[in-house]
């Protein structure tokens, strides 16, 4: 039976707080199911929000919390881009790799069929760009088909270390759609020392050669550098170097080293602190590509339907932001 005084308590309590603030009502030993249904019905009718239900209480918000998704730049909206880890094995063993890739790492390939389905569903889900990464994608014998499955649907960026543009792999590169594909090649410094110290001897020269080859083949090339946070303010010489390679300034990406994977240092990144970039691997849906090998950022084991995965990531982001906003409101002076 409905506890009639509960509704009166709700009306009185909501009047005592400002819009956006939360409050708690209790119902003692009343039937929790009936009480929570009453509270939910009252919220629905009066435009307030049921935040949490316990056995003998409910937490409510006066009005409805602002939609955190509306606070984002449209380009940051989760699901605008779809990241796909084509594989995890790599010809390098970088000492800061966020997903622990190396020549010894198991391939765990996403596979052509799943990439094809993901690319098709991405269009339906409103994704505007596909990004392929690894591991080193050029280790895959069918990479040209994987890329074609993506570029046939959406503009695509392919991340690579740029070191394998020879022989049959160069032939695969040449079969890719230059109008729809951008290559993003990793280079960490303007001279070999720093780059090679992380990625291996002679890797800098081969990567720079890879940029030149990609340009010669008619591809747009972006360059991404991974730097310790303390070096991010000393990047101008690096930009000048990339200018000499013909990489446009807007295609020069500098990113901070993350404390993930095999990296022993770097900035800490959690689901609560990261705006998500929906990421698909052979193992599941992840919050962000930086943590695509870490259970703490696994969102779901189910890749399909892709729209459900994107919706789940968005819902969790909204939940995190609202919880953070509530915490800020509760502890304004702490």
């Amino acid at each position: 039976m409905v506890n009639h005084a509960l509704v009166l308590d709700l009306v009185e309590r909501v009047g005592a707080v400002a819009t956006g603030a939360t409050f708690t009502v209790g119902w003692g030993a009343d039937d929790p199911e009936v009480a929570s249904e009453t509270v939910a019905a009252w919220c629905e009718r009066t435009g307030n929000q049921l935040v949490e239900v316990g056995d003998s209480f409910a937490v409510l918000r006066r009005g409805r919390a602002a939609d955190p998704l509306l606070d984002l730049d449209p380009d940051q909206l989760p699901g605008t881009r779809l990241w796909m880890y084509t594989n995890f094995d790599c010809n390098l063993a970088c000492d800061y790799c966020c997903v622990r890739s190396s020549p010894q790492t198991e391939r765990r390939a996403l596979g052509l069929d799943r990439v094809r389905q993901l690319a098709a569903e991405a269009v339906q889900a409103g994704v505007s760009e596909l990004i392929l990464t690894g591991g080193e994608p050029f280790l895959l014998p069918d990479l040209d088909e994987v890329v074609a499955a993506c570029t046939s649907q959406l503009p695509t960026t392919l991340l690579t270390n740029g070191m394998l543009f020879t022989g049959h792999r160069l032939e695969r590169l040449r079969r890719m759609d230059r109008q729809r594909l951008t290559l993003q090649i990793s280079v960490d410094s303007a001279t070999p020392e720093i780059h090679d110290s992380h990625r291996g001897k002679r890797s800098w020269k081969r990567a720079v050669d890879g940029i030149r080859i990609a340009h010669e083949e008619g591809f747009r090339v972006k360059v991404a550098a991974t730097l310790p946070a303390e070096q991010l303010h000393e990047v101008e010489p690096f930009h000048v170097f990339l200018d000499t390679l013909g990489v446009a300034r807007e295609d020069q990406v500098i990113r901070a080293l993350a404390h993930r994977g095999v990296s022993e240092t770097g900035i800490e990144l959690t689901m609560e602190s990261l705006i998500p970039e929906v990421t698909i691997t052979a193992d599941g849906v992840y919050w962000h590509p930086i943590a695509a090998d870490h259970e703490d950022q696994l969102v779901s084991r189910e890749l399909f339907p892709l729209k459900n995965a994107i919706d789940e990531v968005r819902a969790r982001f909204v939940e995190h932001r609202q919880r953070a906003n509530a915490a800020a409101a509760w502890f304004p002076c702490a």
Binding site: V2, H4, V7, T38, W42, R45, T46
Partner: peptide, 10 residues
């Protein structure tokens, strides 16, 4: 505000 007579039947 109390939902007229609909939220507290009876």
């Amino acid at each position: 505000a109390i939902g007229r007579d609909q939220l507290m039947p009876g």
